[in-house]
């Protein structure tokens, strides 16, 4: 059955957005990512204008991450305190990132810089997570040498002011740490035009040393607030949110997020990390292919600048 989308100005088979929502919601509940890096290009592929695809996806993520956060919160896997500091950093970083885009655009070649940053980030994060989780799966018993290696960085982190204990995550850090790294992810996410879940998850795992299951719940919590802000700004300034498309997507994604959260509990932290790493790497390879293969059309719809 086809439905007409009033803002996207196109007609779509309703099974397409429901199916996409289900698949991406599943990933969201499993790994604590918004899934924009998958959903937006898929929507464009199905004929949704790129600006509408990105804006509507953020509306849909509000629903999926609410559903996912709720599911993780029920089993005590959301560190609200950590989430709030990350959010604070992310908010400041987002503002800085938007200015950064303006500078890039003034310099020209913005698209090139943004695309390259995106591909490099995806590639590095994916490869690092893959190798790291593979090693930790192999050397599960020998954990002592790894601890020693990080003692230097650990000592430096411990020397920072405003140390506080994050109960849910079972870690003690300076308050500055989540704010600074949240800000860093916020800048990159704003420049690349993505939610940044795929960056936030590794930051929480490798820098903040949080347990993987708490990472997923906390990441969803902060994605929820980011996407509320983005949805509002997109609807208010660019008029690009398609409500009907968002509803179709969220029918699938809210259910997917619940299923993902249940599945996630059955998997080990390393298993979750390695699957996410593989997905990130596959997306990287896909983007590299797109960049190097000759496109069938040499012009595309103009942006909303």
């Amino acid at each position: 059955m086809y439905l007409y989308l009033p803002v996207a100005l196109t007609s779509i088979n309703i099974l397409v957005p429901i199916g996409l929502g289900l698949a991406v919601g599943l990933l969201s509940g499993l790994f604590g990512v918004g899934g924009g890096f998958l959903m937006t290009p898929l929507l464009i592929m199905f004929g949704i204008p790129s600006t509408v695809a990105a804006a509507t996806d953020s509306n849909q993520i509000v629903a999926a991450s609410t559903s996912g956060t709720y599911a993780h919160w029920k089993v005590g896997n959301v560190d609200f305190k950590m989430g709030l500091y990350l959010l604070l950093g992310g908010f400041i970083g987002g503002l800085a990132g938007v200015q950064g885009i303006k500078v890039l655009q003034a310099m020209g070649n913005a698209d090139f810089v943004i695309k390259m940053t995106y591909v490099l980030m995806l590639g590095i994060v994916g490869a690092y997570m893959f190798v790291e989780s593979l090693m930790s799966m192999r050397k599960k018993k020998e954990e002592s040498p790894k601890q020693e290696k990080e003692s230097k960085i650990g000592a430096f982190l411990k020397s920072l002011p405003m140390q506080t204990h994050f109960e849910k995550s079972g870690v003690t850090h300076s308050l500055l740490l989540p704010v600074i790294f949240g800000g860093f992810v916020g800048i990159l996410a704003a420049v690349m035009g993505v939610g940044g879940g795929f960056l936030m998850v590794p930051v929480m795992v490798y820098i903040l040393r949080m347990p993987m299951h708490v990472v997923v719940g906390t990441s969803l919590f902060q994605i929820l607030f980011n996407c509320i802000e983005v949805t509002f700004l997109q609807a208010y300034t660019n008029h690009n949110v398609d409500f009907i498309l968002a509803v179709l997507l969220l029918v699938g994604s809210t259910v997917g997020a619940q299923v993902g959260a249940v599945f996630g509990r059955k998997l080990k932290g390393e298993q979750l990390k390695i699957i996410l790493a593989v997905i990130v790497l596959v997306v990287t390879v896909k983007i590299v292919f797109e960049l190097t293969m000759s496109p069938s059309l040499l012009v595309s719809q103009g942006g909303g600048h």
Partner: peptide, 30 residues
Amino acid sequence: KRLADMARGRGALYGTISILAALGAGFGVG
């Protein structure tokens, strides 16, 4: 038509409704 007009003419309201609907759906399914 009503949705398209609202998206164009009353962005703040449209955005708020979209967000509330998404929050409601997320909680509801939860």
